[in-house]
Design a protein around this nucleic acid. Structure first.
Lengths: 337, 337
DNA sequence: GATCGAAGGTAATACGAATTAGCACGGCCA
DNA sequence: TGGCCGTGCTAATTCGTATTACCTTCGATC
């Protein structure tokens, strides 16, 4: 049988109110408990090992010291484990420092291949506020979250739904990072460059293409999803591309590997730039030129932003963190020069 | 402003009770709501997007559909990320299938270098029950959990505190796995074998040594913690050891590497057997003989056992899963044969 | 024409803690 | 000897939902 404050009160021969007052160290004028009574209550509490039911507290108070974590993909999948891990690592670190627990919404049902926040029995309110992770978050979910004024922060930039208040996020500045690398390629003498990646769908994909186009307005764009990377390579070579920018490091690695199997050298014949980290484990651990996503820091800052929102402190609700550029060894001047 | 059942009731011109009955699909004789009224209520619910506050429900009900996860080390540390991940992956999978959320107790304060479940404001009761992870769990914590009848399951075998009911766990059968491998070594002709690992402290360490001693009663035992692995290698060689069993794959790798640097071959001059997976990332990915810990399965089964306990179904509270033996290429007959 | 039962609800209460309002008592001052 | 204040508490209420116990109306039955 669970102990309640009433039980403690009975044992200490005081009222439930007194137990609550002692427990919360209320020493104001309105609640004067002499040391003797206080000690008696504390003694019973110690002896019984009583702890207040955190849920009953929340019913009356505002905060529960729980942050929700909602991932639009599995949190601990084997495949993308390495990719998601740093985000969670940052979130956990920050939560630990702030004395917050994390609630992973693993119960959200999967419909049409995606998880959904909103379903018949959504449990968002168990947490004070939530962090949202995932490549893509459906607009209607974002709209509704904003409309209901649920406190949340997205890890990763999100497009703003029309005519709604800004969606709070902590993202990475893919546009600048990609533009910088593209510029470097031109400065090295590359003339024909290509972008391999979806370039749309998720904001992160669109942003990279945007950064690429900002410098290489008429560079080639090849979405990789619908074809084998060998075919992609084929097309790159037939169009005399000398530097290719690949969204996913795993694809970059596969592409470089395909090139080498055809007797080409990287970066001699083809420079390969990785615009981010590997979404799946890759065999080699070559030192690719490109950038890293500040994943851990994004997690940390997202917790910070959510806390600001929850505590009502003013804070910029949309933050972009710089990506860490990696010099690497796969971007160099094209052979002809 | 949050919507409550009272608000819905007002809008649908019924009582709060009726809203609750409709919401919970109560169709028994004791609660007959005609379709007309039901529809009216459901319409309002749909239009307003109302969802019941999960916390208020729990106050009355027994279950909350939340499982706690308490790790005695960080959950997402960079260092042991790869080691813990599979456990969590299994836990998540199983929780998802069962419609449970996971609460990570990241708020537990660290005292004397360890996290503790029990502290002034312990939040265990937020969850229906909890899973405990970690190399070592202090006996007093286990004793108290059992004493308070808190529903929990340990991932990993735990020694039973004296005169207490059995500690529920899902562990791995390190004893058998280690014994089997030791036996294999003897059958291959090894005469002088050694065990490298603490062999005590954590149950997992003790079990491995136990399995080793079961076959090699007088084999050498070298705790690695207090010395460099080069020293350990030195001693192994001076005692003509031809097969070494290492608790941690990371140590096994380091040891094999040290051996090679001295011009020895593995397994020619020294067989190296890894009794488990790497607790930290290792540079090479050599194909070590030994076994894998069924980490993911342990996570899955732990959730299953906890569910059984929570629902009152009978189940063996102490379960050992077999380890997956790996033939590998680092255990072979000693050179002399 | 009183009784009964079913239909269609609702009022009241419980869950566990926090908060608000206020009560009883004693001492001090006028 | 009455009023006032400070001390040391406690009764009552609140949060949002689920449940239990009951109430009213109406038609059928005896």
């Amino acid at each position: 049988m669970r102990l309640t404050q009433r039980d403690i009160a009975r044992l200490a021969r005081v009222s439930q109110t007194t137990v609550s007052l002692v427990l919360n160290n209320r020493t104001e004028a309105s609640a004067r408990i002499p040391a003797e009574t206080r000690d008696r209550v504390l003694k019973v509490i110690r002896e019984t090992g009583y702890v207040a039911d955190p849920l009953a507290r929340r019913l009356l108070q505002q905060r529960n010291q729980i942050l929700g974590v909602f991932t639009y993909e599995s949190v601990f999948p084997s495949a993308s484990a390495d990719f998601y891990h740093p985000f969670l690592s940052g979130i956990e670190e920050s939560a630990e420092e702030r004395g917050l627990d994390l609630l992973l919404f693993t119960s959200a049902p999967v419909t049409d291949g995606r998880r959904r926040v909103f379903h018949a029995n959504n449990r968002l309110r168990l947490a004070d506020g939530s962090l949202l992770l995932g490549r893509h978050i459906p607009t209607e979910e974002l709209t509704r979250l904003v409309a209901e004024q649920y406190p949340f922060v997205s890890v990763g930039r999100r497009d703003n739904p029309d005519s709604s208040p800004p969606v709070p996020y902590v993202g990475a500045d893919y546009v600048s990072a990609t533009a910088t690398l593209t510029e470097q390629a031109f400065e090295l003498g590359h003339q024909r460059v290509a972008f391999v990646g979806p370039g749309e769908g998720a904001e992160s994909s669109a942003d990279r293409l945007l950064g690429f186009r900002r410098i290489a307005a008429r560079g080639l764009h090849l979405p990789p999803a619908d074809r084998a990377l060998d075919d992609v390579l084929e097309e790159l070579l037939s169009k005399n591309v000398t530097a290719v920018f690949v969204e996913d490091l795993a694809d970059a690695d596969a592409l470089a590997d395909a090139a080498r199997r055809r007797g080409l050298t990287v970066p001699g014949d083809l420079s390969v730039v990785a615009l981010g980290d590997a979404s799946r484990p890759i065999p080699s651990d070559a030192d690719y030129s490109g950038f890293h996503i500040p994943r851990k820091e994004m997690g940390r800052q997202a917790v910070g932003l959510l806390e600001s929102i929850l505590s009502g402190e003013p804070a910029d609700p949309q933050q972009l963190l710089p990506c860490e550029l990696v010099e690497g060894s796969t971007l160099a001047a094209p052979r002809g020069l």
